Simulated scan of single mutants.
Amino acid sequence: MAMENKSSAYLTNIDEVKQVFSRFDVNGDGKITAVELVDVMKALGSDTSLDEVNRIMADIDTDCDGFINLEEFAGFCKGNAAGEDDGGMTELHDAFKLYDLNKNGLISANELHQILSRLGESCTVDDCSNMIKSVDSDGDGYVNFEEFKKMMSNNPSK
C-alpha cells in the first residue's frame, strides 16, 4: 500500500472498486466465492457456465485459496484494464458485454442505469450520464470499450 505516484491514480478510485466488490460479496465476508460470482452474473442477465466462472476465478484468485478478496479484485481491475495481462482482457470484454445490453459496442446512460439498478445501486439516469461524461473521451455520450478500459483502470490519459 505504498503511496507512489504510479499507483495513486488507481487508488483514487478504490472506493468505487470497494463498492463493486461489495455487490459481488453478497454475504459481506470479505471474499467472493464462485457461487456469489454466478449469482451476480445471473442477476446481470448472463448465462455464464460453471467452466467460465471457474476460469474467471482462477484468473483473479492469485493466492489460489478458492476466493477473490478485495486486493485480488482491485488488482484485476487495475492490471487487466491497463492491458498488462492479455489473459484478463477476456474478462474485461465479458464485463463490457454485460453492460452493453443492446450489443451495439457502446454503453449508454440507460444501459448503465439498468445494470446498476439490477445490482441494487440507487442512482438516477442523470448520475449515470455524469459517470459516462467522466470517461467519454470522444464526447459521443456513450462509453466504448477503450473508454471502459480507462474507466476500469481510472487512467486519465487518452
Rank of each mutant, 00 (worst) to 15 (best):
S8V: 06
A9P: 07
Y10F: 14
Y10W: 14
L11Y: 08
T12E: 14
N13F: 15
I14N: 03
E16R: 10
Q19K: 13
V20N: 05
F21A: 04
S22T: 12
S22V: 09
F24T: 02
F24C: 04
F24P: 01
V26C: 06
V26P: 01
V26T: 12
G28C: 12
D29F: 05
K31R: 11
K31V: 09
I32Q: 00
I32Y: 00
I32H: 00
T33K: 02
A34N: 09
V35H: 05
E36R: 05
L37S: 09
D39Y: 10
D39A: 15
D39E: 15
M41V: 11
A43C: 10
L44G: 11
G45T: 12
G45Q: 13
S46W: 03
S46K: 11
D47L: 11
L50Q: 11
L50E: 15
E52R: 10
E52C: 10
V53N: 01
M57D: 08
A58K: 15
D59I: 11
T62V: 13
T62Y: 04
D63S: 05
C64F: 09
D65Q: 06
D65S: 06
D65L: 05
D65P: 07
D65C: 06
L70N: 05
L70E: 12
E71G: 14
E72G: 04
E72V: 04
E72R: 07
A74Q: 08
A74D: 10
C77A: 13
C77M: 15
C77F: 15
C77S: 09
K78N: 07
G79F: 00
A81W: 01
G83Y: 05
G83M: 08
D86H: 07
G87R: 14
G87Y: 10
G87P: 06
G88Y: 04
G88K: 02
E91N: 11
D94A: 10
F96P: 01
F96L: 13
K97N: 13
L101T: 06
L101S: 04
N102V: 07
K103Y: 00
K103C: 02
K103V: 01
N104F: 06
N104W: 09
N104E: 11
L106F: 09
I107G: 00
A109C: 02
A109K: 00
N110M: 11
H113R: 01
H113K: 02
Q114K: 13
L116P: 00
L116E: 00
L116Y: 03
S117A: 12
R118I: 10
L119T: 01
L119H: 02
G120V: 08
G120P: 07
E121T: 10
E121I: 03
E121K: 08
S122V: 07
C123M: 07
C123V: 14
T124F: 02
V125Q: 10
V125M: 06
D126M: 03
D127C: 05
D127S: 05
C128H: 04
S129Q: 12
I132G: 00
K133M: 07
D136E: 07
S137I: 13
S137E: 13
D138W: 01
D138F: 01
D138N: 15
Y142E: 04
V143E: 00
F145A: 07
F148G: 08
F148K: 04
F148Q: 05
K149F: 03
K149D: 01
K149Y: 03
K149W: 02
K150H: 15
M151W: 08
S153D: 12
S153P: 06
N154K: 11
N154E: 10
N155G: 01
N155T: 06
N155F: 04
P156N: 09
P156V: 12
S157A: 14
